[in-house]
Simulated assay, not measured.
Amino acid sequence: MSDPIFSTSDLSRKSGDIIAEALRRPVTITQRNKPRLVVMNVEDYERLRAQADPRRAYSTAEMPRDLLEETLAAMDRYIKDDEA
């Protein structure tokens, strides 16, 4: 069964219905017939956050200093091993 869908204009007219439904399962909110938001109960949201991948990608310009130093040291070791 698919998630219920409401429009942004429904938010003011049917907010109680939307909240009641979102407590049971995620609700999609559309704007101009395009999905824009999902409303869900906090338990489902917290479960999703707990399952999220903690890894991050950085450019070298924004990388935390300690991670940059560790990366550069690993690259130096790799180059030295490759030259040997």
Rank of each mutant, 00 (worst) to 15 (best):
A20D: 08
Q31E: 10
K80V: 05
L23D: 12
I19Y: 06
E83C: 09
D44R: 06
N41A: 08
G16S: 15
S9W: 05
E46Y: 09
D3I: 03
A61V: 03
R65D: 06
G16R: 10
T28W: 01
D76F: 12
L23H: 12
D10A: 09
M63D: 00
M75Y: 09
Y78D: 10
M1R: 13
E69W: 00
L11W: 00
A22H: 02
Y45P: 00
L23W: 13
L48V: 02
M63A: 10
A74M: 03
A52G: 11
A50V: 03
R47A: 07
R55N: 11
T60C: 07
R25S: 15
M40Y: 00
R13H: 11
F6H: 00
I18S: 10
Y78H: 13
E46W: 04
E83L: 11
T8H: 05
A22N: 08
R32V: 07
P35A: 14
A61L: 03
V42F: 04
R32M: 07
P4D: 08
P26W: 09
M63V: 00
V27H: 11
R25E: 15
E83K: 10
E21N: 14
D17M: 13
A57V: 01
Q31A: 02
D17S: 09
Y45N: 01
E69M: 03
M75R: 02
L11D: 01
N33Q: 06
K14L: 06
K14R: 07
D44S: 13
V39N: 11
L48Q: 05
M63Y: 02
D66Y: 11
A57W: 03
L68M: 12
R32K: 04
M1K: 12
T30Q: 04
L68K: 08
D10V: 09
T30H: 02
V38M: 13
L23Q: 08
D53L: 07
I29R: 07
E70C: 01
S2C: 03
P26M: 15
S15M: 03
L11R: 02
L68D: 13
M75P: 03
G16Q: 15
Y78C: 10
A57M: 02
R36I: 07
N33H: 04
P35G: 15
F6G: 00
R77V: 02
R24K: 09
P54K: 08
R55W: 01
A84H: 12
P4V: 14
K14W: 07
I19D: 04
P54F: 08
S15F: 14
S7A: 06
R13L: 05
V38D: 08
T8M: 10
D82M: 11
E21H: 04
P4F: 10
S9A: 13
E46K: 10
A84M: 11
D66W: 06
R56W: 13
E21K: 11
Y58E: 07
A84K: 08
I5E: 02
V39W: 02
S7Q: 04
E62V: 12
Y78E: 11
A50R: 05
S15W: 15
L67A: 08
I19R: 04
